[in-house]
Each structure stands twice: as structure tokens, then as C-alpha cells.
């Protein structure tokens, strides 16, 4: 591990001021905020992350879950995943988020991982994680050995010729479906970013994963007021029964009236280079009868633009089945 200075800022402003000195907030940042450490320490051990300064933000009182004035929920950036998943309001009104989190990682990691950290979770692509390998995300321009190598678990949506790395988060898939808003404080003040705008597609710049700039501190996430009568489900498919990243997952929210779908939100995980909201699927569902044919059509629509690599063609059909079944089970719930 690269040697670093460990700093515990006393307030967010000090943290932001210290972080603003970093050259970048993206890959290669020389100042990093430390939340649960589950991603950052892992990558620091691998020398994928080599910050000179580590800012411990765990004692900045960003760990509250509060109701918002409009009936939504405000979730502090250092709220632990397990606290969020087990929060009564989340379990009642945002079940898909609770399920997504509880399907991720292990109980220990969920006790450590923070909401803010989970928004910034890095890909599990084995080439990204090994500094002996080339990787456009880690070292822009060095090449992508995954495209001609081991890519079974990698992305089929949102890929580019430079990067096919999957976003591994479960929580983010639910937040994409829930249309969460991310609140950021930076050296130029605070701003809000809608969930769909937060993560970037790899394109020609796979090292840029989010819109964050140096000094930007995620302070909290807000969820809009719950959709009345929304049937929610998170379904995750993987090789083993637990403690594994998704091969395909789906977060779905359906409101059904008189057998017709009046409101639908769909996001996919394990298949996209970012948490994959699917407006195509939502369009295919809106106003349609809640039946198997509609669900399958939505799944077809969601995967229409999928592009397989040498080892992961199966993920297209797996994701279709995942979404079809999630919609079916949600509609019956």
C-alpha cells in the first residue's frame, strides 16, 4: 500500500477544502474520502488507488436517516448499508432498496459500507483490479485486455470499445429505479444531481465514472415520496446462492390499477457499465396489461441494445429472464 497521511477533518468544510486540492476526484485521485473502506482499502491494497491523503469522514455526522418535508427520505452519506436496509420506513416504503442492499455482499460488509461509498463502488473487472495488467479505466490508453480475455461477468449494456467493466452495486440499481437524488457539497457550494446523471458511461473516458469534481463531498441522498400502491421487488441472479456480485439483477416498481400498469420503474444490475435504468422497459410497461406477455416484451426492450462479449452472451437472456420474472413476481405481490 502506498503511504498516505490519515486525516480526520472536524467538519465537512474542512474535508471539502482538503479534498479540493486533489488533481482529480476520479481514478488516480491523490486525496480520498474514507467511508466504510470496503472499496477503497481493498483497492489501496492492490495499488489501484494510491492516495497521498485519506480523509476519514465517518465522524462528520453524515449518518442520519430523516424524513423529508415532502414525505420522502434523506439518507446521510455515511449511513451504513445495514442500517438503511433495516430502517422501518425503507422496509415499508422503499422495499426494493432494502432488498437490493440485503442481496449485496455479506452482513459484515453491509455493516461497514456506506451509502456514499456504495454510490462510488468500483468495478470488479479483474483487469482493473490488477496493476500488472493493462486497463483503460486505470491507465487511460493502455488498452482493455478484458475484451479479448476473461469477460464472463462483464457488461453488455453501455460498453465502449475502451471499457466493458460492470458496475457491481446492488444498492444503486434500486436507487436508479427509485429516482434518488444525490446531494453534493463542493468548494463552490452545494448542488443536487439526479441519479441518472451521476454515473457516466465509459465512452472514450472510462477513468471518469461520475460527475464528481475535486472537493465534492456527497453529503446525502434523498428519495422522493413513496409511490402509493407501488409493488416493488429486487431480484438478483448469480452462480452461488449468496455473497456474489450479480450476473444479472432487476429492481422493479409497478403500480397496477384494474389489471393495467399505471406506473413502472425498472433498473438492471450486473449488466451495465453503470446502474442501468431502463426507460425502454418502462415505456413497454406503461399502460399495458400486467401479464407475462407484457413483462417479456419489457425485458426484450430493455436488452434490445445489449452487446455481448466473447464469454457473456448468456447474460442477455439471463437479464431478460431476470426482469421478466421480477416483474411477474412484483405484480403478484
Amino acid at each position: 500500500m502506498h503511504i498516505f497521511e490519515f486525516i480526520r477533518p472536524t467538519d465537512p468544510a474542512a474535508a471539502i477544502a482538503a479534498a479540493a486540492q486533489s488533481k482529480t476526484a476520479q481514478q488516480g485521485a491523490d486525496v480520498r474520502f474514507m467511508g466504510g473502506g470496503t472499496t477503497l482499502i481493498d483497492l489501496m491494497k492492490l495499488n489501484v488507488e494510491t492516495p497521498d491523503r485519506v480523509l476519514d469522514i465517518n465522524r462528520l455526522s453524515l449518518d442520519k436517516i430523516e424524513d423529508t418535508a415532502d414525505g420522502g427520505l434523506k439518507i446521510g452519506a455515511t449511513v451504513r448499508n445495514s442500517d438503511l436496509a433495516n430502517h422501518p420506513k425503507v422496509q415499508k416504503d422503499y422495499l426494493v432498496l432494502s432488498q437490493a442492499i440485503l442481496n449485496g455482499a455479506s452482513a459484515q460488509i453491509r455493516n461497514m459500507a456506506t451509502v456514499g461509498g456504495n454510490l462510488l463502488q468500483r468495478t470488479r473487472c479483474v483487469y482493473f483490479r490488477d496493476t500488472a495488467m493493462s486497463c483503460n479505466k486505470r491507465e487511460p490508453g493502455s488498452g482493455c485486455p478484458a475484451i479479448t480475455g476473461h469477460n464472463r461477468t462483464l457488461a453488455i449494456l453501455g460498453t465502449s470499445e475502451h471499457c466493458i467493466a460492470t458496475n457491481p452495486s446492488d444498492m444503486c440499481v434500486a436507487m436508479a429505479a427509485l429516482e434518488a437524488t444525490i446531494h453534493v457539497q463542493g468548494s463552490k457550494g452545494s448542488r443536487v444531481v439526479s441519479f441518472g446523471d451521476f454515473h457516466l458511461l465509459p465512452g472514450n473516458t472510462p477513468h471518469r465514472e461520475t460527475v464528481l469534481e475535486p472537493g465534492d463531498l456527497i453529503t446525502h441522498v434523498t428519495l422522493p415520496p413513496p409511490v402509493v400502491g407501488s409493488k416493488q421487488l429486487y431480484l438478483k441472479l448469480r452462480d452461488r446462492a449468496s455473497y456474489e456480485f450479480a450476473l444479472a439483477s432487476a429492481a422493479v416498481m409497478l403500480t397496477i390499477a384494474s389489471g393495467r400498469i399505471t406506473h413502472a420503474r425498472v433498473a438492471l444490475g450486473g449488466v451495465g457499465t453503470k446502474p442501468w435504468r431502463s426507460p425502454e422497459a418502462e415505456t413497454a410497461l406503461a399502460g399495458k396489461p400486467a401479464n407475462d406477455a407484457t413483462f417479456r416484451q419489457a425485458a426484450e426492450a430493455a436488452l434490445r441494445n445489449a452487446k455481448a462479449q466473447s464469454e457473456n452472451k448468456f447474460k442477455i437472456e439471463l437479464a431478460r429472464r431476470c426482469l421478466t420474472y421480477a416483474l411477474k413476481m412484483a405484480s403478484m405481490s
Binding site: 473502506g37 470496503t38 482499502i41 460488509i109
Partner: peptide
């Protein structure tokens, strides 16, 4: 609470 001591400083 249970945590992984390897991923903590």
C-alpha cells in the same frame, strides 16, 4: 457490530 477487520484501517 460485526465487521471485517481486513477492510478497516
Amino acid at each position: 457490530k460485526r465487521v471485517l477487520s481486513c477492510l478497516n484501517l
